[in-house]
Design a protein around this nucleic acid. Structure first.
Lengths: 266, 266
DNA sequence: GCTATAACGTGATGTTTATCACGGGTGCCC
DNA sequence: GGGCACCCGTGATAAACATCACGTTATAGC
């Protein structure tokens, strides 16, 4: 049984119930499902706004009965691309990087998932393999629902199935947006500008400036826009020189949104 | 009323009931929904193998009651990216190109849809705008279900909603595959090889050769792999010279699959 | 505070490939 | 049959960017 304090590379972490994760040191975290429910989705702070919000009380109860919860340290892997889908992960806190890699080690990051999102949904509903790899980049807590339980639940709860379909639609939408930035750009500068603007869309604009947190390394940004680490470094320096933006640690300020937009327009 | 014989650029076509399409000459084909049902999904040859197969008889009846049918000539547009989603199109015959374009006219083709596929599904279930443009590249017949009808139907038919979720998962899967070919390749040659192999996956292999139909112009191939028309021409010539493949009109024979695979592996 | 490791900055270099330009081929329509 | 539109082939050119290489600056763990 994995319940208890556990040594991780970065910190101690109280692990209540772990499912199918891989620790940074390579240890496999898989345990049998459903042994105990430490936390149910009623206590999740994102319950109201996301996938299974506002469902009938009874439905939520049915859901929480098949849900288990776990904490994952930075560097942990929730699932790996090519693995048969075990179930879905509902991210309660932290952030998770979704990526795919080629044989020669090149990596493409598709998305940094935020709390409230459901990971592994497409593969779980279709019964195929996870198409992406999910790595924890910020210590995360996540609920897990095993595939069989999840499908049975959906079959009995039409409304929930519809919600799932909507969530999938949004996921697809985001993927298409990503394809546009990667596939329709003429230059790396255009891709970077597109990326920054999309990222900034989640932050408020004040006095023509947008303050945003960007806790990604240049390498990771490069992997998001399909470019190399060095060009990202150079382009960011270039943007700074041209007064388009300003960097202070992990916070980035867009000082000239219009100019960035004119870069993507061409 | 649009029922009757209609002049199209390429051929005459009997148009039974048209929904929201745009003809090559720019004419808008929109008509009010639900006036008459010419064809229902029971008669669709793909009924058995796709989205709504094997549903209870009653469910299928409910479905066909909200379905209308139409024929579209080559060059017609089913929907345009950015348009509010009107509903889903179930492709019965023909082929449809799904693409997205940037302001400066560059185009990225995401998929060539085959009969049996459902178009416009993500936007319809999420209630957003179509994220892609759907152009008919081979004369097509398609069923249409308006958004409101479709959502109401899904709410009442949990099993169908689950099927929809699965279809969406597959769509997403295909999109990720596309992203991999575009985003993880080091060269255009690699992208083209990846593209050809994925395309060939739908055809049988015999004696180490794969015979496949590829009714796409070099321009379109370029738009699928995010490259230029000229490089596609040059690369195909190069592949032919190296005995990797052979082209006869619109049929293409892969003579050395292993070599193509070694190109994508690097 | 010290050391190891990761992240960033920057120059030089060479390949890739987009782009422009033009010619030949083919089918379609008047 | 002549014109028109589209598609394919091919050369020349230039720019963008990946890659290599190395130094510098942060960051984290002891």
């Amino acid at each position: 049984m994995l319940t208890g304090w556990r040594r991780n590379p970065n910190r101690f972490q109280f692990v209540t119930k772990l499912e199918g994760g891989i620790l940074p040191d390579g240890t496999n975290m898989r345990t049998p499902y459903g042994l105990e429910i430490i936390e149910n989705c009623l206590s999740c702070p994102h319950r109201e706004e996301r996938l299974f919000c506002n469902l009938p009380e009874q439905t939520v109860k049915a859901l929480s009965a098949i849900t288990s919860s776990a904490s994952y340290p930075k560097g942990a892997t929730l699932f790996v691309e090519g693995q048969p889908a075990r179930g879905v992960f509902i991210l309660c806190s932290g952030r998770v990087k979704l990526s795919t890699s080629s044989a020669d080690g090149k990596t493409l990051i598709l998305r940094i998932s935020e709390p409230g999102e459901v990971l592994g949904l497409p593969a779980t509903v279709t019964g195929t393999c996870y198409e992406l790899t999910a790595d924890v980049v910020e210590p995360a807590q996540s609920n897990f629902i095993a595939r069989n339980d999840f499908l049975a639940f959906l079959k009995d709860n039409g409304e929930a199935a519809l919600r799932v379909a909507q969530q999938l639609g949004e996921t697809y939408h985001a993927a298409v947006a990503e394809m546009r930035t990667i596939g329709l750009s003429h230059s790396a500068g255009e891709k970077l500008a597109r990326f920054l603007l999309e990222w900034a869309a989640n932050y408020p604009e004040e006095k023509g400036q947008i303050r945003l947190k960007l806790t990604l390394t240049h390498e990771e940004i490069a992997q998001m826009i399909g470019s190399s680490r060095e060009t990202v470094t150079r382009l960011l320096a270039d943007f700074r020189r041209k007064q388009l933006l300003q960097v202070m640690g992990s916070t980035l300020i867009i000082k000239n949104k219009a100019a960035l937009q004119s870069i993507v327009t061409g």
